[in-house]
Write a protein that binds this DNA or RNA. Structure first.
Length: 570
RNA sequence: CGGGGCGUAGCGCAGACUGGUAGCGCGCUUGAAUGGGGUUCAAGAGGUCGCGAGUUCAAAUCUCGCCGCCCCGACCA
């Protein structure tokens, strides 16, 4: 049992101005965290208790799934990152420091290299596999823009696990185990998550799934099918087949028309009185110093993640004005596929069979109408290049997709042998043959998960902690501190509940009842037990469930029974 | 990295244009009353006005530099 007067729970009547989203405001107002600087937060006692609850759930489920906990350094020598080539890839997000010998060290943004190096040294035989190692540790990332409190911070706590298997079947089994463990973890945290297919990004590897907490404040866009189970991050979401785009007067020959000063899709469409979807947007990218023309429907946007995949992983960079002019012979705004030579052309699938289209003529102030791509442009390579949007057909079943926003709290990857090969994590099989381990990696943003719980569980008055992660389970609230019998009864009840094994916070402050009720709602412990003069006169205490406001009275000796009926057991 | 905004008491803000040595609400301390949803009265404490230069008799206020924080954007022709 802890007394409020002996704890440090600095609740705020109003939130600091820079708190943008609900969960961030409540964390500050309820005295869970305080900001040191942008993206850097102190966990106050109540916040830390909740964080430890989340960690405990993660630990229990990881252990249950057979993963082995260890702890790796946060500080890494530069060299190990260069061995996989990821020093280059991640240098933007890595904090770098130098020791007194001027040796460069980085603060770990993730730990694939470190664990793989360990396994390379310690595991030699198939008899030692499979293994899955995990840790709960602080990661450091120099985010472009930290925001939303713990959601995107420069320093955050992550649970990261790494599996090592002898073959694909084993790797898939390890992946499934983690996938299931994650479901359980988030469920126990009281989170409703949506699992979606995801891009592997800087991690590399073959496939991955993200665990998303659906929320308006989410930083990731995703789509889910209105009919089947399909769901995917927007970076990756595929789009089902759509009928070819054939517009009016499709049979007419292509014709140049003047479009003075009309450069953008919107301007040209308005000027020529055509719809944006009738237009062929032509973007010039630089890929390894070579220009590539990318064609997409005028009403769509290029998905650069998909484009990078189509370009064998090379990150495309949009060409500058001079480069566009060198390639197309016209300033930006008038590029089109017809007559474009010496440039690699990539077209989005939705343009396949397009007739009656409108596009730039590669000549200043001029566009082409009645364009038939098959007829008027060089043979094109069609791939999926645009970002999915609401209403697009599902790639699995064709039903309309819905757009949502989500907070990525977990991500599981099949990595293959990318790291094990480069760092020499090899094992000998039964016949003495050497093979690289097949790896998987699995992350959970623990601090982000904590804040997501609040994002999903709050009302107008404060937090509604799910029992499993609440900093304390029960708040005993002495309504009138001047009423000695109530004080005594509150102390007594808190003691009894604590002895029964419950985590109890006793609000023993000499405050007005209103203040204490408001604070109780704010910090949001699952159960509030009010000890008041009036009910005490009847031999009763008042129990209130925070989640749904359910209220009941019972004699103090029946409190444990009522808690049990509410599904709260010590 | 580009654009915009902000930095005055723990939190929320005013004062700045028109320089004269800092104020309001909440919170905090003490006392009293009150005691079932942020109660009331009285008396207090608390500020290098982000930092550093400059202008001036005088700078929170004007000028310059720096630092920090927040928001938007980061090239979709």
């Amino acid at each position: 049992m802890i007394r409020w007067t002996e704890q440090c729970i600095p609740t705020l009547r109003n939130a600091p101005q820079d708190a943008e989203i609900a969960s961030h405001r409540w964390m500050l107002r309820a005295g869970l965290i305080r900001k040191l600087a942008g993206g850097l937060y102190t966990f106050l006692p109540l916040g830390l208790r909740a964080l430890r609850k989340v960690e405990r759930i993660v630990r229990e489920e990881m252990d249950r799934a057979g993963a082995l906990e260890l702890l790796m350094p946060a500080l890494h020598p530069r060299d190990i990152w260069e061995r996989t080539g990821r020093y280059e890839v991640l240098q933007e997000v890595m904090f770098k420091i130098h020791d007194r010998q001027d040796r460069e060290l980085v603060l770990g943004p993730t730990h694939e290299e470190i664990i793989t190096d360990l396994v390379a040294n310690e595991i030699q035989s198939y008899r030692q596999l499979p293994r899955n190692f995990y840790q709960i540790q602080t990661k450091f990332r120099d985010e472009i823009r930290p925001r939303f409190g713990l959601m995107r911070a420069k320093e955050f706590i992550m649970k990261d696990a790494y599996s090592f298997d002898v073959d694909d079947a084993g790797a898939t089994a390890s992946y499934r185990k983690m996938y299931e463990a994650y479901r359980r973890i988030f469920e126990r945290c009281g989170l409703r998550t949506r699992i979606v297919e995801a891009d592997t990004g800087a991690m590399g590897g073959q496939s991955s799934h993200e665990f998303m907490v659906l929320a308006e404040a989410g930083e990731d866009g995703l789509v889910e099918c209105s009919a089947c189970e399909y769901g995917a991050n927007l970076e990756r979401a595929e789009i089902g087949d759509q009928p070819p785009r054939v517009f009016a007067e499709a049979d007419k020959p292509a014709q140049a028309v003047p479009t003075p000063g009309r450069r953008t899709i919107v301007e040209v469409a308005a000027f020529l009185e055509v719809a944006p979807e009738q237009m062929i947007k032509t973007l010039i990218y630089q890929v390894d110093d070579q220009p590539v023309a990318v064609l997409v429907p005028g009403d769509r946007e290029v998905n650069e993640v998909k484009l990078a995949h189509a370009l064998a992983g090379v990150t495309p960079v949009l060409a500058n004005d001079a480069q566009v002019e060198a390639v197309t012979g016209a300033p930006p705004g008038f590029a089109g596929p017809c007559g474009l030579e010496n440039v690699r052309l990539l077209a989005d699938e939705r343009l396949h069979g397009l007739r009656g289209g409108v596009t730039g003529a590669n000549q200043v102030d001029t566009h082409l109408v009645h364009v038939d791509l098959e007829r008027d442009a060089a043979p094109l390579h069609y791939v999926d290049l645009v970002t999915a949007q609401a209403g697009d057909p599902c790639p699995r079943c064709g039903a309309p997709l819905q757009a949502k926003r989500g907070i990525e709290v977990g991500h599981v990857f099949k990595l293959g042998t990318k790291y094990s090969e480069k760092l020499g994590a090899l094992y000998l099989d039964e016949s003495g043959q050497q093979h690289p381990c097949i790896m998987g990696c699995y992350g959970i943003g623990v601090t982000r998960t904590l804040q997501s719980i609040i994002e999903q569980h709050h009302d107008a008055d404060g937090i509604l902690w799910p029992v499993g992660v609440a900093p304390y389970t029960v708040e005993v609230l002495i309504i009138n501190h001047a009423h000695a019998p109530a004080v005594a009864a509150g102390e007594q009840l808190a003691r009894v509940l604590t002895e029964a094994g419950l985590e109890v916070l006793l609000d023993d402050r000499d405050e007005r009842p209103g203040v204490k009720f408001k604070d109780a709602d704010l910090i949001g412990l699952p159960v509030r037990i009010g000890i008041g003069e009036k009910s005490l006169a009847r031999g009763m205490v008042e129990m209130k469930r925070r989640t749904d406001g359910e209220v009941t009275e019972c004699p103090p000796q029946d409190v444990l029974k009522t808690l049990a009926a509410w599904g709260i057991a010590p």
